[in-house]
């Protein structure tokens, strides 16, 4: 690994932690669909995507470990709520299937572009991971796109449900791109072009699918933006999730299962 300055290390850790926490929490949420999804194929899809996301968080926590942070299990299971940097979108309970599907669409579109941008990062370890993940993400976005177009053009009910899920998710999804204090360092060092750039590319990319799904995108200029997650201010939903996720670890950190 090339020698990093103190500020570069801080900026990198912050960026990696945001991405990894999003993956861990959404992976956990997706796994809550296991055995409950309306149809078998979707059950497998959500379970499989959960597995991918948790796998991604592991690789990213390993990278944090390489940068001087504790081991991945300790990072995932011992931090306090305020030390998590996930966005609000991933924290929300699974809700109805339309909500989870829309969240999956909006989030994974951003993630696919994020990893594509990171695959050209000057920080090689992160670029290598991103190159791997973007291939996996392709299947996630393919899945989401197919359902969006299908349901947006099916019955009156499916269309209404998807539009309402979009209206609910949109301000939350804008929280993915909450500006960070290291954005300038990340972009000037060619580590990551920044959340603003990502948000622009994301809007273009979701528009293509939402148009084919005949769904209208809420106006970004008048929309609320659910910020705070990246700085440790979370929704009421994160704490109970963390309590459940860390239950075994808190009883016995050495337990194997």
């Amino acid at each position: 690994m090339k020698q990093l300055t103190e500020i570069q290390t801080k900026a990198l850790k912050d960026l990696i932690c945001r991405i990894a926490d999003d993956e861990l929490i959404l992976g956990h949420r997706n796994s809550e669909w296991t055995a409950l999804v309306p149809i078998l194929e979707e059950d497998i899809a959500f379970s499989s995507m959960a597995q991918d996301k948790i796998g991604h968080s592991l690789a990213l926590y390993q990278l944090l470990n390489k940068l001087g942070e504790p081991d991945p299990d300790a990072i995932a299971f011992t931090r306090k709520e305020k030390d998590f940097k996930c966005c609000h979108l991933v924290e929300y309970p699974i809700g109805d299937y339309d909500f989870s599907l829309m969240r999956h669409f909006l989030f994974d579109k951003s993630e696919a572009i994020r990893f594509d941008l990171l695959s050209r990062s000057s920080f090689e370890d992160l670029a290598n991971i991103a190159k791997k993940f973007r291939g996996e993400l392709k299947y996630h976005t393919m899945h989401a796109d197919t359902w969006l177009v299908q349901l947006g053009n099916a019955t009156e009910e499916s269309k209404a449900r998807m539009q309402s899920a979009l209206n609910q998710c949109f301000p939350l999804a804008l929280g993915i791109f909450e500006p960070g204090e290291y954005d300038e360092v990340l972009s000037s060092e060619n580590i990551f072009p920044g959340e603003k750039v990502l948000q622009g590319m994301w809007l273009d990319s979701i528009k293509i699918i939402l148009d084919s799904a005949n769904l209208s995108i809420p106006d970004i200029d008048t929309s609320d933006r659910s910020y705070g997650g990246r700085k440790g201010y979370h929704t009421e939903y994160l704490k109970p999730l963390l309590d459940e996720m860390t239950e075994v670890y808190s009883i016995d950190p050495n337990a194997e299962w």
Binding site: I44, S48, Q51, G55, Y139
Partner: peptide
């Protein structure tokens, strides 16, 4: 194609 997600991550059905 039934689903790109199969019994393991590397398989489609």
């Amino acid at each position: 194609l039934q689903t790109p997600f199969g019994p393991t991550q590397c398989r489609a059905i």
